[in-house]
Simulated scan of single mutants.
Amino acid sequence: MTFGTAADASAGFDWGLFWAIVAAVVGTLALIGVGFQIVGYYRDHPKRRIEWSATARRLLPADLRPHEFEVSFRGVEIRDPYIVELRVRSNSRADIPSPSFDAGKPITFQIGQRDPIVFLDDSEARGIRIVPSFETRNGTNDVSMLIEPQLIRRRASATMSFVASGLPDIKLGEWPLVDVDVKAADTAGVARRSGRFLREVLLGAAVAATGGVIVAYITSAFLS
């Protein structure tokens, strides 16, 4: 009675089938990693959404009292001046057509009754047009910023800057859009989502590498 050697077993082993199985396993695990990425993309980029944020910077040092100075800008006296920026961005996978504005009403950002306000010329419009609005109520100006009905392309953005007397409280007023969310941008959430996306990519790579090592180890043990 004769016994086959390990060399004989190795010679009779179908290496083509083996590498095909390894490729199939690693490919499947890689597809799982890609799936994580796709799910993360659709989660972080909804079909139609407008995000906005506002920042303000005081021009006078904190230890100076506003009533001790007279500050004017373009001939307008402004006490305790602040430079304010409103940023709007379409974080969407699809365009927002102008008919999405219900009854032709604009998106409104309210600044409140604050007079005076001077809008700057360096405001940027990259696909979104923002216009100021002044309404006189009870003898004071009620100032707001409007995004009137228009086609808003995906990834379009705009920035409107102005100088205000005192720190304004910008609030989202009306947003008569059909099937479109308008919400404050979560800058901390962007960082969290970026970190989660990286972890998902690394997880997919780790799973694929681990699967390849396991398959190689089992095959080595079988041939030994």
Rank of each mutant, 00 (worst) to 15 (best):
S161V: 12
S133G: 12
G173V: 06
R89L: 15
G75R: 02
I111E: 01
P176L: 04
P116Y: 05
A103V: 01
R89C: 07
D142K: 11
R129K: 13
V76W: 04
F119C: 05
D179H: 12
P132C: 06
S133Q: 14
A184E: 15
R126L: 11
K171A: 12
V180C: 08
V131W: 02
P132R: 04
P106D: 09
E135I: 11
L86P: 06
F119M: 03
F73V: 12
T159Q: 11
P149M: 06
L120Y: 01
P149D: 05
L172D: 03
I152Y: 04
A94H: 11
D169I: 09
D181S: 15
E70M: 11
T136R: 15
V131G: 00
F69C: 09
R87G: 10
L120V: 04
I170P: 01
D186H: 01
R79K: 14
I117Y: 03
V178E: 13
I117F: 03
E77F: 07
P168Y: 02
S92Q: 05
V178Y: 02
R154L: 04
I128E: 09
G104D: 05
R155F: 12
G139F: 07
K171E: 11
D80K: 10
T136A: 13
V88I: 14
E77R: 15
I152R: 06
E124P: 00
Q150V: 04
R153V: 09
P106K: 10
V76L: 08
A94T: 09
D80C: 08
R74K: 13
G104S: 02
A164T: 09
I147S: 03
L86I: 14
P106T: 09
I117R: 04
P132S: 07
D122Q: 10
T140I: 11
K105V: 02
R155D: 15
F73L: 13
S100Q: 06
T159I: 14
I111D: 01
D121N: 11
R153S: 12
E77Q: 14
A94W: 07
S157Y: 09
V84K: 06
V118K: 06
I152F: 05
V71G: 01
K183R: 13
L86G: 08
D181F: 05
W175Y: 13
A185R: 15
I96S: 09
D142Y: 14
L172V: 03
D122Y: 10
G127T: 07
V71H: 07
G139N: 11
L172G: 02
F101M: 12
P99E: 11
